[in-house]
Amino acid sequence: MAEHPEERKAGGRRRRQLLVGVLLAVLLLIAGAVLMRTLLHREAAAPPQAAAEVGVVRLQELVAAHPDYDKLQELLKRREEIRSSLDDQLAVPLTVQPPAVDRQPFDDSVWQKSAQDVIGRRSALERAQKKAAADYRKATEPDYKARRDAINAEYLNDILNLKLKLDNRQAMGLTDETVAQLQAQLEDVEGERAARQIALYHAWQQEIQSYAEKSVAKERAGQEAGLGGLRARRETEAARAQSEAQARDAEMISKRMADSVQRQQQAQADQQALAANEQAITALESRILNDIAGKAAKVAILHHFTLITCDPARSLSSLLPAAFRPAAAPDRPEKYVKTISVSAEDVTDEVKAELADLSPEEESSAPAKS
């Protein structure tokens, strides 16, 4: 059967389309081979180098380059000065002991001018008076101590409450005016207690002296009956010497009490100054590190870094609670350790240049020294 003309035309079109498709496929294969060869040749000739993604800075140099570094050194030096002063105040006991009074004759020269028998009788009389004073002192000492302790007990609660409030002033949120009022109250209460103790001590000593004198008053009157003018002179000189000795004792006790109160006040002032200094150091260190972190972040953006590390870096052991720190140094762990890096780029100088743009005036000033 003869092929229809239309069928011959359709068959010719299909053959031409098939031939064109095969030709295009061959051309694509050739082009892909050429492109692959070119890419492989480029990679073999000049392999690309990956850019650093991590930067590193030398932290100690940056801290020293900060405008407030000198201010930080002054605060650290001030802290050592305060600690030294506080150690000096606490090295001396803050309690006051009554001075040991030597009850020897006030003026032996008066008796040396008298006859030997008068000297002997007077010595015997003084020995009897001293013995009476010692016996009375021993018998009344428990009562004196009980009255002294009773005075302490009267003021104990007030003093403890005032000191407790002062020690917890921050937790209680007390104002400076309230703290000053509490300190003034504490000084008044302690001063009143000290004055009553001193008065009690002097009254007890006077009581002992009076008892001793009364115990030998009759014998003394007999001995002095024949002494005439010597008796009046002896009494005058003895009274003056005794008064001077008592005045010296009172002055010594008062001076020691004043010195003790002054050392207590200085110790409290040093403790307050040390706490304020520690706060100032912490705040200034935090501000310096924040400034460094801010400038490092800027440099990181310019270099397209994903991370900037510090050298030295903070030791993980220093962040642990005290109970979990290494046994070698539980209270003083190593705070910083050396940073180990292979391909990190050192950008310390760039961050240091950024810090140079800062000035102490642009930052909030550190807390004043106490």
Rank of each mutant, 00 (worst) to 15 (best):
L19G: 13
K214V: 04
L316I: 10
E61H: 09
L94V: 08
R16A: 11
V20P: 00
Q97V: 14
K130S: 14
Q262T: 14
S359G: 12
A275S: 04
S317L: 07
A124T: 09
A146K: 14
A153C: 02
L86C: 00
D149Y: 05
Q17M: 12
R256L: 04
K338E: 15
A239Y: 03
F305N: 01
A25W: 08
S84L: 14
R233Y: 12
E361C: 03
S315D: 09
G55P: 00
K298P: 02
E235C: 05
A232I: 10
P99L: 03
L94E: 08
V92T: 12
Q206F: 08
Q197W: 00
L24S: 13
G222Y: 05
I301M: 14
F324P: 04
E345K: 15
D107H: 04
K295E: 03
L29Y: 11
S254N: 11
A51H: 05
R121G: 05
A297K: 09
M1H: 04
E154F: 05
A146S: 07
I82K: 00
R42H: 07
Y136H: 10
Q60V: 13
E213D: 08
N157I: 09
G12T: 11
E126W: 10
Q262A: 15
G229V: 14
A293Y: 06
R127W: 06
E74G: 02
G21T: 13
Q279Y: 06
T309C: 14
K298Q: 13
A329D: 12
K295R: 14
Y201I: 04
A322Y: 08
L307F: 03
V179Q: 00
S365C: 09
T348H: 04
R148N: 12
A250L: 09
I82V: 13
P326H: 01
V337F: 04
G228Y: 04
Q73M: 09
A238Q: 08
S260R: 07
T236Y: 13
E187D: 11
Q264N: 06
K335C: 11
Q112S: 10
L156Q: 15
R137K: 08
T178K: 00
P312Y: 01
Q272E: 13
E363L: 15
A31D: 06
Q181F: 01
A133H: 00
Q246S: 15
A245Y: 04
M252R: 14
V34R: 13
A283C: 01
T178C: 01
V63K: 07
L156E: 15
